[in-house]
Design a protein around this nucleic acid. Sequence first.
DNA 1: AGCCAGGACAAGT
DNA 2: ACTTGTCATGGC
Length: 277
Amino acid sequence: MNITQQANGVLLSDIKHFDIKKSCECGQCFRFNKSVSGYIGVIGQNIADIRILPGEGYLFADTDMESFMRVFYPYFDLGRDYDKIVSAFENDTILCKAAQFGNGIRIFRQDAWETLISFIISQNNNIPRIKGIIKRLCESFGEQIQDDFYAFPSAQRLAALSTEALAPIRAGFRARYIIDAAKKTACGKLAIYELCALPYENAQKELLTVTGVGKKVADCVLLFGAGHTEAFPVDVWIKRALAVLYPDLDEPDFGLYGGLAQQYLFYYAREKHLIKL
DNA sequence: AGCCAGGACAAGT
DNA sequence: ACTTGTCATGGC
């Protein structure tokens, strides 16, 4: 892996296990969109303008080394050895196949608060509409960064709102869940940024105290927003995938990096259009 | 037009 | 402990 300062940004080259398309479209994040030559989205207060340079790598446009190392390096999980993780899957031929198919998927380290709200919104919903609701949420209550790019609104800001005030984002029955999560986070009852330091079970228990957060949403927050790589969110797609791929096992355990296994299986199930039960 | 969506919850067995 | 209806909205 090479990281070099260029005139118009930072170039990431000679990188294995990083497919920006797969990583942005595997359903883990909702704030990235296709651009002319890559993907563009918001990370905290920063705009990530990633341009694909075929055969060369990725150019992170309009940024410098300092910002790259502080914001993008941790977000895109660049310090992790994915080869090592995948090698731990090699005794599982099914998982190996899924891992090969999904090669390049990285687990982004998203903001825990943003992840909580995003996956509350995700319940009984589809990805295009989830993205729309989150977009309206940011445009309505987040701070403008530049042009059409808005930061994710703070818990304090949303905690001051009524469910009626959220009507414009059209979150439906999830509006009151969002407000409840905001209030618990803003007052400190839910220590959202401590979840990464807690053992998995304890962290999950904390999240389950929020109205509208069940096991699946909690596991998504733990995996995508709190660095708990062992979290294994079970949704309808994973249920189908497990039933088809592991018909004899009722609850397969993929270990410490089950979260990555889950992403591979999820991507595999969706892209291969695995039949319904 | 109608089914269903990266579920959770409450009320019923 | 399992099963079922309901929730608000709109993508396909």
